[in-house]
Design a protein around this nucleic acid. Structure first.
Lengths: 210, 210
DNA sequence: GATAGTGGATAGGAATGCTATCCGATGGTG
DNA sequence: CACCATCGGATAGCATTCCTATCCACTATC
């Protein structure tokens, strides 16, 4: 198919498709001439993945590129792909790191993980994010909220087992890789949406009107 | 304290403090003269909250303003405050809504919530976000990931009970309001960070090296 | 009474994510 | 085989967001 059809059937405007091509999110089509190229189903599929990551996953264009490069790297072990996805999701935190308070929070994050017996990369971006949140709670004098950490950890551990199991249940590597990325990013979107709904339901039941 | 001291002790640059004042995130200080004003502990506290919402919670300045207005509205019932916080977090989704596929996903989201017996506002932004994720998964041919929804819902329901309980355990309204906001926003940050760590641990155990 | 700092206003700037326009080449259409 | 839409490729512009810089007249303080 030509670029205009790719644009039409994906719902992404033509200038935007060109932009994604420029940015290397979308691989170039098969060149038919100096100014003609053909795009296939894989391009359409890729375009949909890009939109899902940007629209639903709130990834930046740079983050998407990072993820897709990892997806396309056939050599990369699945485990590293997950790390790449996490880095891309994480984006660049604006939080102040390096202050004594943050360092303490960071150590606390490492201890929480170690106490659970979780083996994670010591430079995992999620450790820093956890430290960001802990440091912020302490700074705001909301340390009682830290009591939730255990509950969060237990819940996420159980969920991670299901998620990883689901991805591994797929046969081939390509499907697993896509499942890993979508599961990580879109799963997070589902989880946070459901959390908000559960909060609303619970708080309505306890504090709101009938 | 004067504005420069407020800037110094909060770690927020002076032009940025002025910017937050302009934007109405930070209430003006008590005017001492034509060009002097005094700021108190409450300003420092508010400034820290602003930074936490922006840095850790990834809220936009507009979202922070929305949340803070609700926080300051002493009349607003707690339940509505939660809704405001959710709206501010949600931001403006770029996802395509209104397509038949999305409408179906939206109906599915409503059914999931109804099946659980959750009573939520029918226009809750989180319902749309859930629909965004469901629609994206379907469009990408990853419907097997939808099997996770039950697990997510159950986990978030249990967590929400703990969270709401924790906030209600506080005595006065002001503390509850702040706890609600920080619990919603920073709790989400903690939950997602822990989810990533749990995923990394689990996937390492199953697919990675010892 | 110099000087540093103040509130207030306005302008500038970097990053992000597109969108618009121009170009010359080409492909299908009649 | 002429024509006009469309193509790829490139460059420029634009809207938004979140600050940052500069200027100003004034004032508290040393």
């Amino acid at each position: 198919m030509k670029i205009s059809e790719l644009s039409r059937s994906s719902g992404v405007s033509l200038p935007t498709v060109k932009y994604y091509l420029r940015e290397g999110l979308l691989p170039p089509g098969r060149a038919l001439g100096r100014n003609q190229a053909e795009y296939g189903e894989s391009h359409l599929r890729r375009l949909r993945l890009i939109r899902a990551l940007i629209d639903v996953g709130n990834l930046s264009v740079a983050g998407v590129r990072q993820v897709l490069q990892a997806v396309d790297d056939a050599e990369l072990p699945g485990h590293h792909l997950l790390g790449t996805a996490h880095e891309a999701i994480a984006g660049s935190s604006r939080a102040e790191r390096g202050t004594p308070g943050w360092q303490a929070a960071r150590a606390e994050a490492a201890r929480i993980v170690a106490d659970r017996g979780w083996r994670v990369h010591e430079h995992a971006p999620a450790l820093d994010q956890l430290a960001d949140a802990i440091a912020a709670l302490r700074e705001l004098g909301q340390e009682d909220m830290l009591a939730m950490v255990d509950g969060y950890a237990e819940a996420t551990e159980r969920l991670a087992r299901q998620e990883v199991g689901l991805v591994l249940a797929r046969g081939d590597r390509a499907a697993m890789v896509e499942g890993l990325v979508t599961g990580t990013v879109l799963g997070e979107a589902m989880l946070t949406a459901l959390r908000r709904l559960a909060q609303e339901h619970t708080s309505a039941g306890l504090t709101g009107p009938a």
